[in-house]
Design a protein around this nucleic acid. Structure first.
Lengths: 326, 326
DNA sequence: AGCATTCATGAAAACCTTTACATCATCGAT
DNA sequence: ATCGATGATGTAAAGGTTTTCATGAATGCT
């Protein structure tokens, strides 16, 4: 060492004010010359926190995932936290498996993209043994998990109102698995807009899919089979909207003159489809940052101000919507 | 405890064979009833390894990233390793920052998506102090870092030969930053195919971009300005090809009759463009698994058999290529 | 029976910090 | 001059494992 005790070194590094100017200088000097770096394992062992956050995501390929992740990461690394990632594919056993990071103290908190408590955090589980968690992308309805995301109801309403304002009267809603909270909210927003404009909700114009491009295509085809056609399609997400557009293009319709299509999310390819997609943009980076900020404050022992932090989705007007027949 | 020493518990858990049947039973029983889980921090401290792998990626939104990541993750979690993710945005200071995970023993090895050694692993760096690393997606040419990926030269040659076999004689290559090894290899494959078919390489038909959709569009536009037109475009990646297609669509050309377009990578949206994109598919999941397998074997002290593990890219024929004028 | 070998277990060190507590010196105030 | 307060540093415990070495029992061999 540099003529000083081990405790003083620790202090010199972590709380420089508590140590004399001269000693501090000697310590930093010695540190620099030896290339010493503090062993995070020992620190974690002693402090009983790892400065790691576990991220549980069903699908790291989801276009929403990566952008939110960047936001999470920005905030986390600003605060000295690292991100551990767990790809679950919605497989219960993998979820359970990842919980070992929590129970073995390798992670202090949890970000959930999954929309549900990880399998293994049973209902019987001792309530206060649950680690700090924040849900993102998909709210977790079961328990009291704070949610950070976009106001899905409001966003869908704005979207539907945009179509109404363009003169559409027969607007379809292509949804996804009805059990999903996000789907429920977006459909509710759609209904609210229609009702608010004095339009009837035609159940034949509401189709459930699974949120994939393929399901969007299938839904559009189904519409033609049923022969109950809308003048505009409001889709639960951009992937679905892309499927609808593909189907309409294949049928040689001219878009948006014959049919208008809207999506939700504003994923990167939305602007590259033909016609480019009018959609609602999620501020994903901000969502990520806010979620991490909230989680870290929970970790610091603060109580959450509210059960959810909602951002407004922004209407992005491109070329897939026009007045009907125009 | 269950009437047994702390050392025996450790043994019962980690090397069950070394402990008597009866004792083992008592221990597992006690573990189950108390809900004991071993503290990974203490273990790491003692074992001097964390069972974590740090992943350094310039852009977690890159369509290649997520699929390779899934492969990495599959293999890692099979072997009990966790994945730490570091998003660097190609920012030197962020790269350096993430190295603290290595130097503080929070990660045992490194997967590089960046195509270069992290800033901070200077050249002067004590060679053997470098942690085990494997490069993926982009080879690292500077040092002796093993690479796992697709055979870019061969893949590009197959692609170009496909165009030649369709009767194309004037084939453009839209590349990206010439400094990139991947670009160099793919361009070399393109040249080899042309030369091999007895075709001259026309430098006016080779344009560098930056690998984005926007740059693909710009490159196509530039071709029209220069008025040295090909009958087919071979693009360094799918994003670029998408840009070319957008440009050609905007100019109201009929594809693939008037122009053929090929990409490389087979990203998810390749099949959703109109016309759907003929491209070379990277076996990304396999690449991820192989890379992680290699890294873990390095970690176990084995010497790598070879400096690179290459997979063949697979030709995926869709609708963006046809004989010229057909 | 006596000795060597094997096997199961326990004791204790080591891994590297952080931090409560103790010590000691210095200084100001009475 | 003494006492108390303040401030800087050192001592040692604690955190939870793994593993070497020692111990003791049981087994096998001559």
């Amino acid at each position: 060492m540099a003529g000083v005790s081990i405790a003083t070194v620790s202090r010199a590094i972590n709380e420089p004010t508590k140590v004399a100017e001269e000693t501090r200088r000697r310590v930093t000097e010695a540190v620099a010359s030896t290339g010493y770096t503090t062993n995070a394992m020992a620190r974690s062992l002693r402090m009983r926190r790892s400065n790691m956050i576990l991220i549980l995501a069903p699908d790291v390929g989801d276009p929403n995932f990566s952008n939110i992740l960047v936001g999470l990461e920005t905030e986390a690394s600003k605060r000295g936290y690292g991100l551990l990632i767990g790809n679950t594919q919605n497989d219960a056993s993998r979820e359970t498996d990842y919980l070992r990071f929590i129970s073995s103290n390798q992670a202090d908190g949890l970000i959930l993209f999954t929309g549900h408590l990880p399998f293994g955090f049973g209902v019987g589980q001792d309530e206060n043994r649950l680690p700090p968690m924040v849900a993102v992308n998909e709210p977790v309805t079961a328990q009291d998990v704070p949610f950070v995301g976009v106001d899905n109801f409001e966003g869908a309403r704005v979207a539907a109102e945009h179509l109404v304002s363009q003169g559409h009267r027969r607007i379809a809603f292509i949804g996804r698995s009805p059990g999903r909270e996000v789907n429920r909210l977006r459909e509710a927003g759609y209904r609210a807009a229609l009702t608010g404009a004095g339009l009837a909700v035609d159940p034949r114009l509401i189709i459930d899919g699974d949120g994939t491009t393929e399901s969007g295509r299938a839904a559009a085809e189904l519409m033609f089979v049923r022969d109950a056609l809308p003048t505009a399609f409001l889709c639960v997400n951009d992937a679905t909207a892309l499927g609808v557009i593909i189907s309409l293009n294949a049928r040689r319709y001219e878009l948006p003159r014959q049919f208008s299509v809207m999506g939700f999310d504003d994923i990167s390819f939305a602007s590259f489809v033909t016609p480019s997609l009018t959609t609602m943009k999620q501020p994903r980076h901000k969502i990520g940052e806010a979620a991490m900020e909230l989680l870290l404050s929970l970790l610091a022992g603060e109580k959450p101000k509210s059960r959810e932090v909602l951002f407004r989705a922004e209407l992005i007007v491109r070329n897939s919507v026009s007045p009907p027949g125009a």
